[in-house]
Amino acid sequence: MPAASALSVLIVDDQLTIRSLVRNGLQQIGVTNTREAGDGEEAVAALVARPAHLVITDFNMPKLDGLGLLRAIRSYEPIKNTAVIMLTGRADPELVQRAAQYGVNNYLVKPFTVATLREKIEEVFGALT
Rank of each mutant, 00 (worst) to 15 (best):
S5Y: 08
V12N: 03
D13K: 01
D14L: 04
Q15H: 11
T17S: 13
I18T: 10
V22S: 01
R23Q: 15
N24P: 00
G25C: 10
Q27T: 13
Q28K: 14
I29Q: 07
T32F: 08
T32H: 11
T34S: 06
T34G: 01
R35Q: 11
R35A: 13
D39I: 02
G40C: 00
G40D: 00
G40P: 02
E41K: 10
V44L: 15
A46K: 11
A46Q: 12
A46E: 11
A46G: 03
V48I: 14
A49M: 06
A49F: 01
R50C: 11
P51D: 07
P51E: 08
P51T: 08
P51K: 10
H53C: 04
L54S: 03
V55Q: 06
T57L: 06
D58S: 04
N60Q: 12
L64R: 13
G68V: 08
L69H: 01
L69C: 07
L70I: 06
A72Q: 13
A72L: 05
I73E: 04
Y76A: 15
Y76C: 10
E77G: 09
P78K: 05
K80C: 15
N81R: 13
N81W: 07
T82L: 09
M86Y: 00
M86V: 13
L87S: 04
L87R: 00
T88A: 03
T88L: 01
A91H: 12
A91I: 05
P93E: 13
P93T: 05
E94R: 10
A99W: 04
A99Q: 06
Q101W: 02
G103E: 06
V104A: 14
N105M: 09
N105I: 02
N106A: 15
N106W: 01
L108C: 06
K110Y: 05
P111W: 02
F112A: 12
T113S: 15
L117Y: 04
L117T: 08
L117R: 04
E119S: 14
K120M: 12
E122Q: 12
E122H: 08
E122G: 09
E123G: 14
E123Y: 00
V124P: 09
G126I: 10
G126P: 09
A127C: 08
A127I: 12
T129I: 09
